[in-house]
Design a protein around this nucleic acid. Structure first.
Lengths: 249, 249
DNA sequence: TTTGGTATTTTTGGATCCAATTTATGCTCG
DNA sequence: CGAGCATAAATTGGATCCAAAAATACCAAA
């Protein structure tokens, strides 16, 4: 059952990670020979991996020129949150309609209670960022799995294939915002348990939408960009590692 | 500007077409040597093409066993329409918020008027199927392009990567159903022009949802399947060419 | 100094080859 | 007859090679 990954899978995973963490600058062209050598494999699996990452939206392909790391505009990120809000809202509605199993309900309760414990400190401790984020990701993924719709799961996953808008990015600096956001989790769970699809959908929609607004405002502030001028300059500056991470919801 | 396609692109396009038209049975494994020879190229571009089609959801991959044509369950098709309704509804809302350009408004009016002319016969002529379907596809795509959200466009496109649920499938046998469906087009356009995002979203949502219901009912009837028993048996029978096509909206 | 043309180098897409894995076939035994 | 095992054949993933295209460097002319 647990088979070794193919070289293509290894290459794709490493590349994906490097792109999402920002260590390969957007706009840069991937040198196949050098990269294959650095990864310790031939160009064949590397090229397959790159073709797959291009279909995933992380790379752009141009024949005879090869693959470049895709640059995202602030508008693209905003659009990704738009779609994510709609799809996660749909997931909530479907989950409410299907109802939660006892196991799933218990699982989601555990996540929410873990969030309570972390936020019970009354402040944001840097050491709490990683566990809170993991709890957050798992809460969302649990709901989507309950939706029973594999397309929703897949498309939401793909909206995370954006270096500045993935679920590894989390703004952890304003206690009140995080507390309100976690209150959303409480309310979403209550709505799901009550089988109130419309309520669950609406809260989730606002939850994700607001997270997107926060992220975009943060990016704009950090890069001191005017709202109409984000594209290429934002792409160039994304080679810097984020010191703070964004909440994705 | 108009460069020749790479061998990989040629292979992918041919394979995609064959899968969507049903001439390669779901569940069947693609023999790389034979297929490469039949396509007149080496295995290298073919394998890249297959890897890409796997990311697109048309093929399943298993290491050392290669690629098989993916089988879809009736539930998968239903789920695809669920997501498409959600996303095309979102596209309408966004399009209404952005407003239509004069050019786009004129274009959408032309499509609707073409539909009127075709349906003005008072019956469904088989020769009208292709132009009506093209009109339908273009109307939907025009709206999605107006949404300004590239993720919506891409994800909806991917929901069509299902042999029995793509936009090449169109039920063209009940005049009243088509007429009502085209009335939806009228109403959607009116809502867009009035910048009424909620109305446009809701009509489109019902429009796509109902089309999904029709298709699933048709598939169920044609294959004489009980609702709970669709998966593998549906997959096996899809090798037969559809004599009638389904409307996608 | 700038521009255009040419030559050279580098990179990429595809073809071919090879080894490992999977599948198919044949044989034996209960 | 069916199950299990061994062997042969087929298939696949990756490495290497080659030709074409793109990028870079260089030189001459305006």
């Amino acid at each position: 059952m647990s088979r070794p990954p193919t070289s293509t899978e290894v290459a794709a995973a490493i590349l994906r990670e490097r792109i999402l963490e920002g260590s390969i600058p957007p706009g840069s062209r991937l040198q196949q020979d050098a990269l294959a050598q650095a990864l310790g494999l031939s160009r064949t699996p590397l090229r397959t991996a790159m073709a797959e990452l291009a279909k995933d939206g992380l790379l752009d392909y141009s024949p005879n020129r090869g693959f470049t790391v895709r640059s995202f505009r602030l508008a693209d990120i905003r659009a990704a949150f738009e779609v994510r809000a709609n799809l996660e809202g749909l997931a909530c509605r479907l989950a409410a309609e299907r109802g939660l199993s006892e196991e799933r309900a218990a699982e989601l309760r555990r996540y929410v209670e873990q969030g309570d414990r972390i936020l019970g400190r009354g402040r944001l401790d840097p050491d709490d960022l990683a566990p809170y984020r993991r709890m957050n990701v798992e809460f969302h993924e649990g709901i989507m799995a309950t939706s029973g719709n594999p397309w929703v799961v897949e498309f939401v996953r793909r909206t995370h294939n954006v270096p500045l808008a993935s679920d590894r990015v989390f703004l952890w600096d304003d206690y009140e915002i995080i507390r309100r956001s976690h209150d959303d989790h409480h309310r979403i769970l209550a709505a799901l348990l009550a089988r109130d699809g419309r309520r669950a959908e609406n809260i989730m929609w606002e939850h994700v939408t607001y997270a997107g607004e926060l992220l975009c405002a943060d990016l704009r502030r950090r890069h001191r960009l005017a709202p109409a001028d984000p594209a290429e300059r934002l792409s160039r500056t994304t080679s810097h590692r984020l010191s703070r991470e964004e909440q994705d919801a």
